[in-house]
């Protein structure tokens, strides 16, 4: 059995001065090496939830454990070394004069040797397609570049749990695919990867487990096909199905064709549609 990375037990949370509960009894276990996407409408509490994973926020009620340690009794600095969080707004994260220094910062903090820092920073910047921009100020980057920098500055110190709030914002198709590959590699290396995203296509294409939050509660937790084909979940969490999913649902409804409504990956659905056309043609003796 795989070890548990994050364990959330009956977590209740509200911000100071507010009397509205933002998180209302969250229960959740994420194992080491898992890849999880969290979806949910604006204001549903996603960012608030992940801020509990490195102890930045502490539960009002209930318990959050990271590698078995209750976050109430652990220092944020210690947790941060094992749990890297990339925040929704990267601007909050930057303070260095150059892209290079921004990425190197944590390594200096953790006391790595100059040589090791040099090696790691160079590798990470190249991985994130930022090496050519290394002398620029983080604040003069494009939106997409800033987000890749925010991720680079976390990846560089190799935390065990990587949490990214909205990783695909500002990324073109090429960078999205690359990001998915990187996250995959990390999970295969035994890292735990958690993303919060509104990018449904990205979530159902690349994540085997999806958690849906709505009004501070988990309303679904399962494989992409369990979630994306469920009208109730989709509507409650303000999800819009990717067009290709809507297309095959409508195809099966309107034309009564036999389609497999469990596929979620784009290429699989394309194949499904090709099969429909082929079946029809051969039944009519064409080709």
């Amino acid at each position: 059995m795989r070890k548990v990375a994050i364990e959330v037990h009956d977590l209740w949370f509200k911000y100071n001065h507010s009397n509205e509960w933002v998180l209302k009894g969250i229960n959740l276990t994420v194992k080491v090496g898992e890849k999880v996407a969290i979806l949910g409408e604006n204001g549903s509490g996603k960012t608030t939830l992940i801020k509990h994973f490195n102890g930045l926020l502490k539960p009002c009620n209930g318990v959050v454990k990271v590698f078995g340690v209750d976050t109430r009794f652990a220092s944020v600095a210690k947790l941060a070394r094992r749990v890297g969080i990339v925040f929704q707004n990267p601007l909050h994260q930057f303070f260095s004069e150059t892209v290079w220094d921004e990425v190197a910062y944590a390594l200096y903090n953790f006391g790595y040797s100059e040589e090791e820092i040099e090696r790691r920073v160079e590798y990470t910047l190249k991985l994130m397609d930022l090496y050519d921009l290394r002398y620029k100020s983080p604040f003069t980057l494009s939106g997409g570049e800033m987000r890749r920098l925010a991720l680079a500055s976390i990846l560089v110190y190799n935390p065990d749990i990587i949490v990214i709030d909205e990783p695909t914002i500002g990324q073109d198709a090429k960078h999205k695919r690359k990001l998915a590959e990187i996250l995959n590699t990390l999970a295969n290396m035994g890292k735990t990867v958690i993303v919060v995203t509104h990018d449904i296509e990205f979530a159902i294409e690349y994540f085997p487990r999806i958690i849906v939050l709505s009004s501070g509660k988990i309303i679904a937790d399962g494989s992409p096909n369990k979630i994306i084909y469920d009208d109730n979940i989709v509507n409650r969490a303000n999800i819009i199905r990717p067009p290709i999913i809507s297309l095959i649902i409508e195809l099966s409804k309107r034309y009564n064709v036999d389609v497999d409504l469990s596929k979620t990956k784009f290429d699989e659905i394309v194949r499904e549609i090709i099969n429909i056309i082929r079946r029809k043609e051969s039944s009519l003796g064409i080709r």
Partner: peptide, 30 residues
Amino acid sequence: KLKRLLPCCETPLTIEEALSLLGRVIAEGS
């Protein structure tokens, strides 16, 4: 991606356009 199977159609952009094209294919076989 369907270009080879459906070579001469105008590319649909919306779900409705796609449905009506595929609907014709399913109804008429071609």
